[in-house]
Design a protein around this nucleic acid. Sequence first.
DNA 1: GACTCTATCTATAATGT
DNA 2: TACATTATAGATAGAGT
Lengths: 99, 99
Amino acid sequence: MGRGKIVIRRIDNSTSRQVTFSKRRNGIFKKAKELAILCDAEVGLIIFSSTGRLYEYSNTSMKSVIDRYGKSKDEQQQDNVANPYSELKVYICSTKLIN
Amino acid sequence: MGRGKIVIRRIDNSTSRQVTFSKRRNGIFKKAKELAILCDAEVGLIIFSSTGRLYEYSNTSMKSVIDRYGKSKDEQQQDNVANPYSELKVYICSTKLIN
DNA sequence: GACTCTATCTATAATGT
DNA sequence: TACATTATAGATAGAGT
């Protein structure tokens, strides 16, 4: 999206990379908020820039999200101990980055 | 984006909400991946659906992201103790959700 | 860097199967 | 209820300030 199509690979020029980071960071935070509201989801998003700065968003609190994440993972772990096939319950969210 | 404009509020119809969740979840995961690659950032994204299912993405590992998040927060905390004005360092990433 | 502009690309709401 | 289509709203690359 934009004046030209881009390939998804690290942007070499540091100024361009920073500008793109700023724009896309805003974009993804907006998407996270919309998803949380529209779909009644709990969302936590943590981003460290290449310079090490932290940016974060959560519609609840990051502590709540991380705690819930840990519990959810523990439960998955217990499932795996009980049933070796339960890894099928782990949802893979992949999207092709071609183009 | 789409055939009609939508207002950002909880989708009442549960079927529509689930469909939108699926589409937008894919969209935001793609955005997270692109941001990580293009801008050389470390990204962690945790989403719990309204039915409680966990979906996650990290370009490194979620453990790494959460650990780094904790450290970064600790440092911010120390800064705050040392310098009461350092809360200005906390980056606010807000985007209006109007339209 | 942060902001504006806008042409163009992308995501997705609504619809069809 | 998942998949495919498509018209359109939205995001953003590139350029200028």
